[in-house]
Design a protein around this nucleic acid. Structure first.
Lengths: 343, 343
DNA sequence: CAACACCACGCAATCGTTTGTATTATCGAA
DNA sequence: TTCGATAATACAAACGATTGCGTGGTGTTG
């Protein structure tokens, strides 16, 4: 079994007191003790296969070397890369990742947060979607470091790592504009979700930026980020504006809903109508036709959140508010120049 | 900040010694102490908002109320439901879930395992793919309880929760047989992965079960569970047997590879050739055509793994070896009766 | 040669629990 | 009344590490 050898054993083996052994093994205090003894202790530790007991250490130092990560829905493939990014940097620094899946209602996230605080995590990374920070999180903030990922919060005091939705929508709109589209619509996400509201706003701004008509009328809001709501929203939009040659969807699934709507209206995607997605989730390149989509660097997003969290934990002053990560555009077959002959 | 009130505070508030407070709060020892004092202590604890310090408790009891979960690739959407299932039952019992992502080579899983052992997790759930149990895991086995999920191991001594691949392949083969197919091929996964070998074997058995030619020649092994290897394997298979009317893929991604191969050969999927996937990953129903696939109950798989792990932790005798979960078949448009006119 | 600085190390308290054992009080029975 | 049993609680030692402080020894300096 592991970890049966304690610091006391190492001390005995090296012929020193347990406290000297502790200091010798701890890099920050090793300078106090004679280099020769440090060597002896280190050798003894290696020989006995000593590993410090994290609980005992944590009890004394009030640090558990663990951080909690709360995800709104682990089954959503979007969060895989985020988790991977977080995990990769934290494990490297010796931290463990506690995961919480807040898929049982809005207050579930708070109870998970409470439990993680009880466990004395050294930090928290929250990916829960709501735009306002909960009371529990507020209370937690003066206890542990908190970083948000993939969502910002109206209260700009908490550091957040988010995708740059404004730039992302810009990539899509400019791409379509450069292809020659002039009549572009937007299927928006629900406006109570931060991404829904933000991308909608960005769409309007970019439309006028590229010199096109920027009207609320070109936007139809889907009830939820799913295929079917996207479908109905797109049908509404296209019945209002049958002359649209392109749709910017606020989300990949909404984009797939647009696919369905276009098909049901007899339009050939990537020829008669262009559609862009957002997020570039896995398998999107395997759709028919493969979907052009704004790609958000989710893995990097997780990794950056973890590194800023580590900075906060080690006492550095970290500016609050969102940090925007630049998206890219994965251009595929769902976008093409508009039909040349306009009737 | 939370948890600032310690047991000592509660004891003082209730006017008893700290040890009596401890016993009063602990259900298994509460019988020893006067019911009236139990009440007093409980009230005091509630009033002060007392929460036991998990580290101190764990240090004394050698239980951390945490379990480690090692996943081969968190970014694979397959593992989302498994994690969700695990988390849902463990959190309910007061356990925390430590997640490890073993995406940096084969020995990475072992180092994660080591670290989790150092953290004194009470149990481990492993989803790493290899068919043999590593030395590290073997050594770990007499320290903590271990359950495997989504993979079995040649050494049948460790409990494992897996999908019933034999039944699943049976669903696919019988479905195709009932549609009228007689010339069915198999694109297999790598044989060093347990699922690859198992599904391949199951395919052969079911082929003869339904009275069809069961030959190794009808199988082509893909190098890895990805689209492109599936594509090349399918091309090889179809060039060897141009008369095949159906392919059973060992995996959804391999199935999508078959899609690609069929298209490049000019065959219409769901008409001239039928293709089945395996796993039924998200978005598979949105492919063109939507793919018929064997659906594995991954969330239940995770939940069952967690419950058997809890049983082992609480000292129950759990039989080793795999427990098979029954799959279902999601029938979609990629399968249809074979072309009636055979030339 | 004395005084002092300082380096290396040991001592012991501490983190917050749990738990074996000792102590006190209470009661019934002889 | 006295003794033993029993119940209820207090005492104290762990669990394994960290860390302020005290102390012995060595070297330097006036």
């Amino acid at each position: 079994m592991p970890n049966r050898t304690t610091l006391k054993d190492v001390a005995r083996e090296a012929g020193v007191h347990i406290s000297t052994a502790s200091r010798a093994l701890n890099p920050s205090t090793a300078a106090i003790v004679n280099p020769e003894t440090v060597q002896r202790v280190t050798d003894a530790a290696k020989k006995l296969g000593y590993r410090p007991h994290p609980l005992a250490r944590g009890l004394r130092t009030n640090r558990t070397m663990s951080v909690g990560v709360i995800i709104p829905d682990v089954e959503n493939p979007l969060f895989g890369p985020i988790i991977a990014g977080i995990e990769s940097v934290l494990v490297e620094e010796g931290y463990s990742v506690l995961i919480g899946n807040a898929d049982r209602g809005p207050n579930h996230a708070d109870s998970l947060l409470e439990e993680m605080l009880e466990r004395h995590v050294d930090g928290l990374i929250l990916a829960t979607p709501s735009r306002e920070v909960s009371a529990a999180a507020k209370e937690a903030r003066d206890t542990v470091s908190i970083v948000l990922v993939n969502r910002s919060v109206d209260d700009q005091s908490i550091p957040a790592i988010v995708g740059d939705d404004h730039a992302g929508i810009g990539l899509a709109v400019r791409h379509l504009r450069e292809l020659g589209h002039t009549r572009i619509g937007h299927v928006a996400g629900p406006s109570w979700v931060s991404t829904g509201a933000g991308r909608r706003q960005a769409f309007l701004e970019w439309m006028s930026n590229v010199g096109l008509d920027s009207s609320e009328d070109l936007i139809e809001e889907a009830e939820w980020y799913q295929v079917e709501p996207g479908n109905t929203a797109a049908i509404n939009l296209l019945s209002r504006h049958p002359d649209l040659t392109a749709i910017v969807a606020a989300n990949d699934l909404l984009g797939l809903g647009c696919y369905r709507a276009a098909r049901s209206l007899g339009k050939v995607i990537g020829v008669e109508i262009s559609i862009t997605g957002y997020n570039d989730m896995p398998l999107l390149d395997l759709m028919q036709p493969p979907m052009t989509a704004v790609r958000v660097p989710y893995r990097k997003m997780g990794a950056d959140a973890a590194t800023t969290l580590l900075a906060m934990i080690s006492g550095e002053e970290v500016p609050g508010g969102p940090v925007h990560l630049a998206p890219t555009l994965a251009i595929r077959a769902s976008t093409a120049p508009p039909p040349s002959n306009q009737h």
